[in-house]
Simulated assay, not measured.
Amino acid sequence: MKRALIVRHTPVEGAAGYRRPIEDAGYDFHRIDIFDPGFRTLDWLAPDLIVVMGGPMGVYERAVHPWIDGEVAGLAARIAAGRPTVGVCLGSQMIAAALGAPVYPGPVKEVGFAPLRLTAAGSASPLRHLSGVDVLHWHGDTFDLPQGAELLAGSDLYAHQGFRIGDSLLALQFHAEMGEDPRFAEWLEDVDYIVDAGTNPDALDAAHARLGGAAVAAGRAMITEWLGRLPSSR
């Protein structure tokens, strides 16, 4: 059986809605946290699929989080080898850094459900399932588009919301995996961050209840199609 490894930077940001399509595609599901003893010696080339999830830290906070250097180096090696890789939010920023692009604080915090603006390439990619769908955004950092990357999506506040290189690398700044996961209640506890973004926990909770199901369904369709396009799946 193929092996999928989910890299978690915090327990409240796991594969969530993406787990089902990964398992349905025939992957044996595993996870590793950055504080697990085996993380520092992780063989980044070994898993058939790696999905790098989000977290509250910034890629540029390497003095505070010394493990970031190892993760970026591991991702760089994996990407160079053409191994299937997905990055979500912080994971997308890690991928950008692994490709040599700068990652830095954005102009505002983007928090809440809102649609994406797909590029022509995005409309022809698995992200087409997200067209017109409000998905969750929860970030304050951004990145320059890496050299050789194809931009797939932006939003009203951030130009770079998704990119790919070939069929084996997908970077997603947004959270189309979130909408039905009970851990969202823990996200809502970060009141200062939410208020700083110009919203409030009650409004986010209501939007989650109203829009989350459709977001997850679209996100699952996106991941299902992306997995089906992998060279090893053809």
Rank of each mutant, 00 (worst) to 15 (best):
G91Y: 01
S168A: 15
K109I: 10
A114G: 10
A203P: 08
E180H: 05
A176Q: 15
F113S: 06
P115A: 08
L75D: 03
P102E: 11
G154E: 05
A77D: 11
A76E: 09
I79S: 01
S168E: 14
A81Q: 08
P201T: 13
I68Y: 06
D192R: 14
A73D: 13
D141Y: 01
W138A: 05
G166L: 01
L204W: 08
A73I: 12
A185I: 14
A149E: 01
S92A: 15
G140C: 04
P126N: 02
L118R: 00
H160Q: 05
V108W: 10
I79R: 02
S168T: 15
E180R: 11
A124V: 04
A203S: 12
L172C: 08
H137A: 12
G112W: 08
A81Y: 10
A176K: 10
A149H: 02
D144V: 01
A197E: 13
A120D: 13
E71A: 03
P115Y: 10
L127P: 06
I194S: 09
A124K: 04
H208P: 08
G179W: 01
D134Q: 13
D192H: 08
L188A: 07
E150G: 05
G179H: 03
L157V: 15
L90H: 05
L204P: 11
A176P: 15
H175V: 06
G179V: 04
D196E: 15
M178D: 14
G162A: 15
S168V: 15
F113T: 06
D156Y: 06
W187G: 04
I68E: 02
N200G: 05
K109H: 15
Q147V: 07
A73G: 07
R183Y: 15
G154V: 06
D141N: 07
F184I: 07
P102R: 12
V86S: 03
P102K: 08
A120Y: 03
W67V: 06
V191L: 10
H137W: 12
A96N: 07
D196Q: 13
P107N: 14
F163R: 05
F174V: 14
A77M: 09
F174A: 11
V133M: 07
A98W: 00
G179R: 02
E189Q: 15
A203Q: 13
L169K: 00
G198M: 01
D181F: 11
L145D: 00
R78L: 02
G140L: 06
Y193H: 14
L157H: 13
